[in-house]
């Protein structure tokens, strides 16, 4: 019996799990929203702005599949165009918040010490604030509508996201492979970007998707309070605000955008949870 390693076959790779049907549907929903956001103009049957004050709000008909709103605008076309603000703001919020949070979280988790306690003090403060209330008040008082809301949400989201990145970094930091790199004299920046970041990136990605859903809901909420997008903009939250009074005459004008908010958010949440489970399984 000699010291020898038997040439083992590479362990058969687990067959790539089939994507569950719910996730397939979620991806389809997101794809539809993306297509509507970019090609809304060619898909929508009508302009979202054409007013027909003479007919006002009507229930669904052959001409207007989702009926019209108080000003006689085609609800379906407005919903399709509304995909744009439903997509772009949340994307900016999720990406922006995580870009900042990744930098702060890496610094905080890897450097520790004063940097860490300073950043975490700030995070604790932000988390103790009633975020949605802050958004309502700041956007309401400062003005500036949609993009102010996006900016405020980025700041609010950065705090919890920083905590997520930091704890992912803290999980990697004490592992021997980091110590081995340090003992070899690998530079700090290389350790951060070549060793730690790639190992925490999948988790960050999953949270970006979850953040998107949360930002969508928040932005729609602000628009629903009349604080987000400019009046008249086709936007799902804004439609809920403007069409509140026609719940009895054309409920579709409320139910359709409401359903779109839920569907999109549910889809992104499902995808985010699924990614998270996939990335953390091993």
């Amino acid at each position: 019996m000699t010291e020898h390693v038997e040439a083992t076959q590479p362990k058969e790779r687990a067959p790539r799990d089939a994507i569950p049907p719910a996730i397939v549907i979620a991806f389809i929903v997101v794809a539809i929203v993306v297509i509507c956001a970019f090609f809304g103009g060619s898909i929508a049957p009508d302009s979202p702005f054409t007013q027909r004050l003479e007919i006002g709000d009507t229930p669904p008909s052959a001409e207007f599949p989702a009926g019209t709103d108080l000003l006689g605008r085609d609800v379906l076309s407005r919903v399709i165009h509304g995909a744009w603000t439903a997509l772009i703001g949340p994307v900016v919020v999720a990406a922006g918040a995580f870009a900042i949070a990744t930098v702060l979280g890496l610094l905080s988790g890897y450097l520790g010490g004063v940097v860490d306690s300073g950043i975490m003090r700030w995070v604790d403060f932000m988390l103790a604030l009633p975020g949605p209330l802050v958004a309502i008040v700041v956007v309401g008082v400062v003005g500036g509508g949609y993009w102010t809301a996006v900016a405020v949400l980025i700041i609010l989201f950065t705090a919890p996201d920083t905590r997520i990145v930091r704890s992912a970094v803290l999980e990697q930091r004490p592992r021997p492979y980091i110590d081995a790199a340090r003992a070899l004299g690998v530079s700090k920046t290389r350790i951060l970007f070549v060793h730690i970041l790639p190992n925490v990136l999948p988790i960050i990605l999953a949270y970006v998707v979850l953040d998107f859903a949360f930002a969508l809901v928040n932005l729609a909420g602000l628009s629903f309070l009349g604080l987000g997008v400019e009046p008249g903009t086709p936007d799902w939250g804004r439609m809920l605000f403007e069409n509140r009074t026609i719940l009895f005459t054309n409920p579709v004008a409320l139910l359709l955008p409401a359903a779109m908010v839920i569907l999109t958010a549910v889809s992104m949440n499902l995808i985010g949870d699924w990614l998270f489970a996939r990335f953390t399984r091993q």
């Binding site: 021997p176 081995a180 790199a181 070899l184």
Partner: peptide, 26 residues
């Protein structure tokens, strides 16, 4: 140094070649 825990002594995202190349590169 050689560490105790064999399961996290190597960066899970790096092949053996990549780990050794980095070490030689130092």
């Amino acid at each position: 140094m050689v560490f105790q825990d064999p399961y996290s002594t190597l960066n899970p995202r790096h092949s053996v070649r990549r780990s050794l190349t980095e070490a030689i590169g130092t």
